[in-house]
Amino acid sequence: MPLVRSSMNAFGTTNIQIHQLSAAVAVGDALSAIEIGESLDVSRMPDSLVGRRTQVHLDLAHAYAVQRKDAAAVHMLLHAERQSPELVRYGQRTHDVLTQLIKREHRPSTPQLRGLAQRAGVV
Rank of each mutant, 00 (worst) to 15 (best):
Ala65Ser: 15
Leu58Pro: 02
Asp47Val: 10
Gln118Cys: 09
Ala71Gly: 06
His106Ser: 10
Thr13Lys: 02
His75Leu: 09
Asp96Lys: 14
Ser39Asp: 13
Arg5Met: 02
Val42Ser: 02
Ile102Leu: 05
His19Tyr: 05
Arg114Ala: 00
Ile16Arg: 03
Val25Leu: 10
Arg82Asn: 01
Leu3Gln: 13
Ile18Cys: 04
Val25Met: 05
Gln83Ala: 15
Arg52Asn: 14
Arg53Val: 06
Ile34Arg: 02
Ala23Lys: 15
Ala65Phe: 15
Leu21Ser: 12
Arg119Phe: 11
Ser84Asp: 15
Ser48Gln: 13
Gly37Leu: 07
Thr110Trp: 14
Arg44Tyr: 05
Ala120Arg: 00
Ser84Thr: 05
Gly115Ile: 01
Ile36Cys: 03
Val56Ser: 02
Arg82Gln: 00
Ala117Cys: 10
Val66Asn: 04
Phe11His: 05
Ser48Glu: 15
Ala26Gly: 08
Ala120Lys: 01
Met45Arg: 08
Gln92Thr: 14
Leu49Ala: 07
Gly91Glu: 10
Ser48Met: 14
Ser7Pro: 11
Arg107Ala: 13
Ser32Ile: 06
Leu113Arg: 06
Met8Cys: 02
Gln67Leu: 07
Ala24Leu: 09
Leu49Ser: 05
Gly51His: 12
Lys69Leu: 07
Gln67Arg: 12
Ser7Gly: 15
Ser6Gln: 02
Gly37Gln: 08
Ser84Val: 13
Glu86Trp: 11
Ala73Asp: 08
Gln118Arg: 13
Asn15Gly: 09
Gln55His: 00
Gln67Trp: 04
Arg114Phe: 00
His79Tyr: 04
Val56Gly: 08
Gln112Asp: 03
Ala71Thr: 02
Thr14His: 00
Ala23Pro: 07
Arg52Leu: 04
Thr110Lys: 07
Gly121Trp: 01
Leu3Thr: 06
Gln20Leu: 06
Ala10Leu: 07
Val50Glu: 05
Asn15Ala: 06
Arg82Gly: 03
Gly12His: 15
His57Lys: 03
Arg53Phe: 06
Pro111Leu: 11
His19Ser: 04
Gly121Phe: 09
Leu40His: 10
Ala73Trp: 00
Ile16Gly: 03
Leu98Arg: 15
Gln100Lys: 07
Val122Phe: 00
Ser39His: 13
Arg44Leu: 02
Gln100Tyr: 06
Ser22Gly: 13
Pro2Ser: 15
Ser84Trp: 12
Val97Glu: 14
Glu86Ser: 15
Ala120Pro: 03
Val122Leu: 04
Tyr64Trp: 14
His75Cys: 01
Arg107Gln: 12
Ala10Arg: 04
Met45Gln: 11
Ala117Asn: 08
Met1Asn: 09
Thr94His: 10
Thr54Ala: 12
Leu3Asp: 02
Leu49Phe: 04
Ala117Ile: 05
Leu116Asp: 11
Val27Gln: 04
Gly37Met: 07
Leu60Ala: 12
Leu3Pro: 02
Arg5Gly: 01
Gln92Pro: 09
Pro85Met: 00
Arg68Ala: 14
Ser43Lys: 11
Ala72Cys: 11
